[in-house]
Design a protein around this nucleic acid. Structure first.
Lengths: 223, 223
DNA sequence: CTTCTAAAATGATAAAAGTCATCTTTTAGG
DNA sequence: CCTAAAAGATGACTTTTATCATTTTAGAAG
């Protein structure tokens, strides 16, 4: 297991004893807000269990999901490091346990621990690369391709059992549309197409990926 | 003048004497490539004069401009810090002079100079915030609003004389379309609309902003 | 000052996606 | 188990944007 990947997972830190000591946990029910766009960060949050979405509100009231967070992921670090207000909100998509680390502890660590600081930088670089990638996709890829990509992202992010053939996730069509950046109805229509093509199966709000390879080829990830 | 903003501008560094000593300059003619998407970074580039675009190629061959760089700006730092290949290319939009700092120098500085390291982190945080902002805009704002925004971005980035009423820039419709994330023809059509509405004037490839306030209100930056 | 080429501009049309209305299925609560 | 509210699904229609074809203009080279 890579040390770097868990560098920031305060919930099982090695060199982060100090953080662990001062962290507190909180349970958020499905739909509850962890922090709000525009407010000032007073610390850092780490997802311990459950699914969390990080999202921005467009001027027309439509929501865009910027990032999906899973257990072990840190959220809200950008605002803290830029010393600015949150540019996005974090909301629990399931019941989720989220730990909290006060800003002072975080800053101490940044200034004293070089490894931690470097890890953070890599994290930021990676996030920036991903954001730029998605920007390009939003610009030119049609919705069908972006939806295929979103389904694969969900699988990559939330599939716990690697071997298990058919990944299933319960997600509202609204949230899915917010990841893709499109209207709910368009998402539903395209999901119906995917169903007809036997790429997925649905039951209520649950979506099961039957043929990930087809999804890959739809979004040209084989190029 | 803020020290933080010039922290990375190796071309006029204060605490960066080491960098300055080992930097070399190179003139790139309009259209020349400074570095290429996919290749491995061997150092850092700083724009000394001219305009530089940082862009990605979409799978369908359409180009998306990720970032505009002006004199004093550093480019290619993300890949260097993430220790990965360039995820975008840099191309001179005008004749441009670009300085080069070898990776070793850069790494030394990161590890030895805390201020430098912190400045980099803020730079990354800011870039990430901007990328996320643009992602949301791409998702939901119509092309007309995004074009207005792009024109204001060009002004904000490249206007040297703050007082001067009418900002003028020469930019190909193709490049402008690549910033907005739309087709060249759509861009031209909307520019014609703006011309009819006396928001801009054009002469050849030059665009003059006559009424920045109207542009602001078009893209809802007053909300 | 011409001529040639590339870029800008415009028109016609097609495709993609959004919106609004409606119906159906889930799902949670009594 | 039944019912109400929420979410999913689908249809009809409109708007936005892309694409392709063509004309006009600007700018460089002879």
């Amino acid at each position: 297991m890579s040390r770097k990947n868990s560098l920031l997972s305060c919930c099982r830190g090695d060199e982060l004893e100090g953080l662990s000591a001062s962290k507190s946990s909180c349970l958020y029910k499905k739909g509850q807000v962890i922090f709000n766009e525009g407010s000032k960060p007073s610390g850092l949050h780490c997802v311990h269990s459950g699914k969390v979405k990080v999202c921005k509100m467009g001027s027309d009231g439509k929501e865009q999901i910027i990032r999906l967070a899973k257990p072990g992921d840190v959220i809200g670090y950008r605002a803290l490091m830029a010393d600015s207000n949150y540019s996005a909100s974090a909301v629990a998509m399931d019941d989720a346990v989220v730990c909290y680390v006060p800003k002072s502890q975080f800053m101490e660590l940044i200034h004293e621990n070089m490894d931690f600081s470097n890890g953070l930088m890599k994290l930021l670089s990676k996030a920036l690369g991903e954001a730029e990638e998605r920007m390009t996709q939003m610009a030119y890829k049609p919705v069908r391709e972006r939806l295929a990509e979103a389904l694969l992202l969900l699988q990559k992010t939330y599939q716990q059992d690697e071997n298990k053939e058919n990944f299933t996730i319960a997600i509202s069509r609204e949230d899915l549309a917010s990841i893709v950046g499109t209207a709910k109805e368009t998402t539903i229509r395209l999901l119906s197409e995917f169903k007809d093509e036997q790429i997925i199966a649905t039951k209520g709000s649950s979506i099961t990926i039957l043929d990930a390879d087809k999804l890959y080829s739809i979004c040209h990830l084989y190029d």
